[in-house]
Design a protein around this nucleic acid. Sequence first.
DNA 1: AAGCGAACCTGGCTGC
DNA 2: TGCAGCCAGGTTCGCT
Length: 302
Amino acid sequence: MPELPEVETVRRGLEPVMAGRFIEAVTLNRPDLRFPLPARFAERIAGQRVEALGRRAKYLLADLSSGEVLIMHLGMSGRFLIRDAAGTRAPGEFHYEAGDGAKHDHVVFRMEGGASVTYNDARRFGFMDLVPRAELTASRHMRDVGIEPLGNELSGALLARLFEGKAAPLKAALLDQKLVAGLGNIYVCEALFRSGLSPMDPAGTLAGPGGRPTPAADTLAATIRDVLAEAVEAGGSTLRDFAHADGSLGYFQHRFRVYDREGEPCVTPGCTDRVARLVQSGRSTFHCPSCQKPRRRRRGAR
DNA sequence: AAGCGAACCTGGCTGC
DNA sequence: TGCAGCCAGGTTCGCT
């Protein structure tokens, strides 16, 4: 499911149910997700109040009154089900239809007042951890996380600096969470398409003479922001008219321009090419070969 | 050291 | 209908 916009959508869905409320009980249906849950996981959470529910990159961060932070990562298939005190969903709230997926309900938080929040994750690539608030930024999960792409620091200049000297293709560099944190396969494809940049261009080509950003670097920084901001907005929309959602909440319905459109016509006005798929680092890359032509390397530059 | 492929685990879809 | 094969939004590990 989750790249940054989906995680932010989930955060907004959970916030009204969790933030400011006490967690009365925690039920674990198995001892591990991707990793073993930390020692005494349920006991350390039960009875604590959620002071705030935040997000960093693709991580959800619940600040607990105990002084610990509950770190949650959704992996590929993690999702949450919210039930009100009567056991049914509250109107407009975040849920999926309970049913055959229930065997993957791994963690249940029973909230003050009787509502519950269930973490379901079929592939179990997600995980949860508890760390003291003061140690969060130095924790193994947060330590190497790169810049927040919706924050103020993302710019062409910063991208050029982060990517300078890198031979890895733009696609791989943008997926590297240590550089820019929060992009995944979908939004990297979308941002590169909107920028007109080939996913195969060496990342280092965003840096011009003296390491200054090329125009392409500025364009890419801007499109990353645009793509993510639009997706967050679309997720929010889906959340608001949730009555029609089909259970894949967090997978907001979204029209991608290239992602998963192999063989379909390029959406660029006047372009007669079709979307192509290639594999980079074992992942599918969707792009328009005409609109995203590889750029020539600067001969002898630097 | 950087960069790439495989691995982790399960389900859904396609094609024979 | 069954089954094999391939694919999936993420991260981490190990080999070159």
